[in-house]
């Protein structure tokens, strides 16, 4: 269980996080979405006690992170795969972390196998690829078999096989009843992984919803093809729908595909196609965060 309450973090005059409130419960993968600079990492750092909030608080299992004894048994975190001393071997790196929380070497070996790094355990971390470092970071998070997991941009640098692996891992962890919070700036990635999303922009909460709600909310219209456009348009408009011509078809809003079919059948109008069209989650996300993009490129000429 992760609770963020009225969290505000200022750096100088810039508000990285601004009165953010949300919570993540066990049992599902929560996607933490926002454009670059939205405050995702700052929020995660505040949850982990690395950054002191300017006001508000962030709690893990009802406690401040810094007060938890041997926190690796309760919370696992991957904040930055590069945040390791490059001179230690992969095994030594995990061993050092494990020891600080009273975790034995057997568990280190097991975790290395679990993330597929057993073969490079003796290699220095500095010589590992970014993808391998991500796996090492995941291993560090899993060391204490914690009930709460935070991953900051875990798919960065992973190859397709690695991305699939981490997707399954996160879903499995959530299915085991753990609390899983994953940040990303890519909606497409979250669409495949997350059950719920917390979308933020400029440090503020934009939306907290289930993935299903999000796609329902951005339901756009229904495309209808028929040889009898005029009759059908009249019939649909009578029942309150808005109808627009589109490339010899009809784009209908304000009525479900189910009702359109019923009306057409009732009027004995043959329909050749009936397609509900929703904005892709990607579009939904862009629309949501449009006002809050901090670093924007000039529109490229097409």
């Amino acid at each position: 269980m992760i609770e963020v309450r009225e969290l505000t973090k200022r750096y100088g005059t810039a508000r990285a996080v601004d009165g953010l409130t949300f919570e993540v419960k066990p049992g599902y993968v929560a996607g933490f979405l926002g454009p670059n600079g939205a405050g995702k990492s700052t929020t995660m750092r505040a949850i982990l006690g690395l950054d002191r909030p300017t006001s508000g608080e962030a709690l893990v299992n009802g406690r401040h992170y810094a007060e938890i004894k041997n926190p690796m048994h309760h919370v696992g975190a991957l904040i930055d795969a590069g945040a390791v001393h490059g001179g230690r071997s992969a095994y030594d790196h995990l061993h050092v972390l494990a020891r600080s929380n009273g975790i034995g070497p057997k568990r280190v070996v097991h975790t290395l196998e679990q993330v597929g790094l057993a073969g490079v355990a003796r290699r220095r971390v500095g010589t590992l690829s970014l993808g391998m470092k991500q796996r090492l970071g995941v291993a560090a998070a899993l060391l204490g078999d914690p009930g709460v997991l935070l991953f900051d941009e875990p798919v960065n640098g992973l190859d397709p096989e690695g991305i699939r692996w981490i997707r399954h891992l996160m879903r499995d962890l959530a299915a085991e009843g753990r609390t899983v919070l994953v940040s990303s700036h890519l909606m497409s990635e979250m669409a495949l992984t997350a059950d719920r999303v917390v979308v933020i922009g400029r440090g503020k909460l934009i939306l907290e919803a289930s993935m299903q709600d999000l796609s329902d909310r951005f339901q756009r219209d229904v495309l209808v093809r028929t040889a009898h456009r005029t009759e059908l348009t009249r019939a649909l408009e009578r029942s309150g729908a808005t109808v627009r011509q589109e490339d010899g078809a009809l784009a209908v809003q304000g009525i479900t595909a189910h009702d359109i079919g019923e009306i057409a059948a009732h009027q004995r109008i043959p329909v050749h196609e009936l397609t509900p069209r929703s904005a892709s989650l990607e579009d939904a996300y862009l629309e949501l965060t449009d006002d809050s993009v901090e670093y924007r490129t000039e529109e490229t000429a097409r």
Binding site: A66, D80, A83, L97, N101
Partner: peptide, 19 residues
Amino acid sequence: TSEYGSGMIRTALVSVPRR
């Protein structure tokens, strides 16, 4: 300083948050 230089300090303080 090697921990601050490499970023390891963040990993270290997450495993031992009692500063």
